Amino acid sequence: MEPSVAVVGPGAIGTTVAAALHEAGRTPRICGRTARERLHLQGAAGRIVVPGPVRTEPAQAGGAVDVVFLAVKATQVEQAAPWLTALCGADTVVCVLQNGVEQGSLVAPHVPDARVIPSVVWFPAQARPDGSVWLRGTARLTLPDTPASRVACEALRGTWCSVELATDFLSVAWRKLLQNAVAGLMVLTGRRAGMFARTDIAELALAYLRECLAVARADGAMLGDEVPHEIVDGLRSGPADLGTSILADREAGRPLEWDTRNGVVLRRGRAHGIPTPISDLLVPLLAAASDGPG
Rank of each mutant, 00 (worst) to 15 (best):
S4G: 08
V7P: 11
G11E: 07
I13Q: 07
T15H: 07
T16W: 01
H22N: 06
R26P: 01
T34N: 02
A35K: 14
A45W: 14
V49Q: 14
P51H: 07
V54M: 12
R55Q: 15
A64Q: 15
F69W: 12
L87F: 01
D91V: 02
Q98E: 00
V101K: 07
G104F: 06
V111E: 07
V111C: 04
I117W: 05
L135V: 11
T138F: 05
R140P: 11
L141V: 01
L141M: 04
L141A: 05
T142S: 15
L143E: 02
T146S: 14
V151T: 13
A152I: 03
G158I: 05
C161Q: 06
C161A: 11
Q179P: 03
V182A: 03
V182F: 04
A183P: 00
T199V: 01
I201G: 01
E203F: 04
E203H: 03
A218H: 09
D219V: 07
D219N: 12
I231R: 07
S237N: 03
D241E: 11
L242Q: 12
T244I: 02
S245W: 07
L247C: 06
R250S: 14
W258Q: 04
R268P: 08
G273Q: 00
P277N: 10
L281K: 09
A287M: 09
D291H: 00
P293A: 10
